[in-house]
């Protein structure tokens, strides 16, 4: 009885998680292929792109997530000694640091939600994304703010960018990106290649557990916290798998925190539980 149920559950889960992928793929199969992005997802993200800068709109969990992920990045950089002492508790703690915010066509953070926050803290931020529309939204939004001249956006893939800018950045940020990537190893290799030795990589993503399927897909979509089809469970990654991948590219994990979302208050907080969302900070070996 139980095994039968469990296998059916697995089938259902697979169907439920991937139902949008199937639909979209049939329509857009003829799109040109690319190494690291999924075309079907790009189409989906384009569809929701107009909602990007509406703080109460579809992307509201991403706006409120800044309240935990920006301090996570800031404190991580302070703790690894990259921030100068004079800049502690200052208006621009990340001054003189180079940060790459990787979007790769599907990054939630890119619409500039995260890039702009880091630029306001004084960092020289490069946002990279392969979706033209998202880059346009981000660029036009940043242009509204005259004080953000330390922020630039590039349209392109991380693989291409890594070739020209290896060992260039103090930190690379992959916020809510890696769960949309199929070939995680190649993708991470390119990202790590951009980091200076001693620099950091910050990742926030979703774990691959039954609970994350129930929470981040079924619950989140049914209660309209995120638009249907945002996530595909197959592409989620467990904490220790991600850690292992990073170790392959000489990155030592120094911190893993669980993240929990409170939909009633639209707020995020840290938790011990890494079964659904988590944040990871790793440092590249010198």
């Amino acid at each position: 009885m139980l095994p039968a149920f469990s296998s059916r559950f697995r089938l259902f889960k697979k169907y439920y998680s991937n139902r949008y992928e199937n639909i979209i793929i049939t329509n857009y199969l003829n799109c040109s292929t690319n190494t690291s992005i999924d075309k079907d997802e790009e189409v989906y993200f384009k569809k929701h792109s107009t909602e990007w800068w509406n703080k109460m709109g579809d992307m509201k969990p991403l706006h409120s997530m800044n309240k935990v992920r920006v301090p996570f990045i800031r404190n991580g950089l302070i703790n690894t000694g990259l921030v100068q002492k004079d800049n502690f508790n200052n208006a621009t703690p990340l001054k003189d640091l180079f940060i790459l915010d990787v979007g790769c066509g599907v990054n939630f953070a890119i619409g500039g939600i995260l890039s702009e926050a880091m630029a306001r803290l004084g960092a020289n931020v490069t946002g990279i994304d392969d979706t033209k529309d998202l880059i346009e939204i981000a660029t036009s939004h940043a242009a509204l703010k005259s004080d953000l001249n330390n922020l630039q956006y590039i349209k392109g893939t991380i693989a291409d960018h890594a070739q020209q800018s290896s060992n260039k950045y103090d930190a690379v940020v992959l916020s809510e990106v890696i769960e949309h990537i199929k070939e995680k190893d190649k993708f991470l290799e390119a990202c790590v290649n951009c980091i200076k030795p001693g620099g950091s990589i910050f990742i926030t993503t979703i774990s691959k557990t039954n609970i994350s399927w129930a929470g981040a897909i079924v619950f989140a979509e049914q209660f309209k916290l995120i638009p249907s089809g945002t996530h595909q469970w197959d592409k989620f990654i467990l904490t220790h798998h991600l850690q292992r991948l990073l170790e392959d590219y000489n990155c030592r994990t120094c911190l893993i925190h669980g993240l929990a979302y409170n939909p009633l208050m639209n707020s995020w907080h840290w938790t011990k539980n890494t079964m659904i969302n988590y944040a990871l900070h790793a440092v590249k070996d010198v």
């Binding site: 800044n66 800031r74 208006a91 926050a117 306001r120």
Partner: peptide, 9 residues
């Protein structure tokens, strides 16, 4: 102060 330190506007 905290909001600005978190990159908020």
């Amino acid at each position: 102060g905290d909001a600005i330190y978190c990159g908020s506007v």
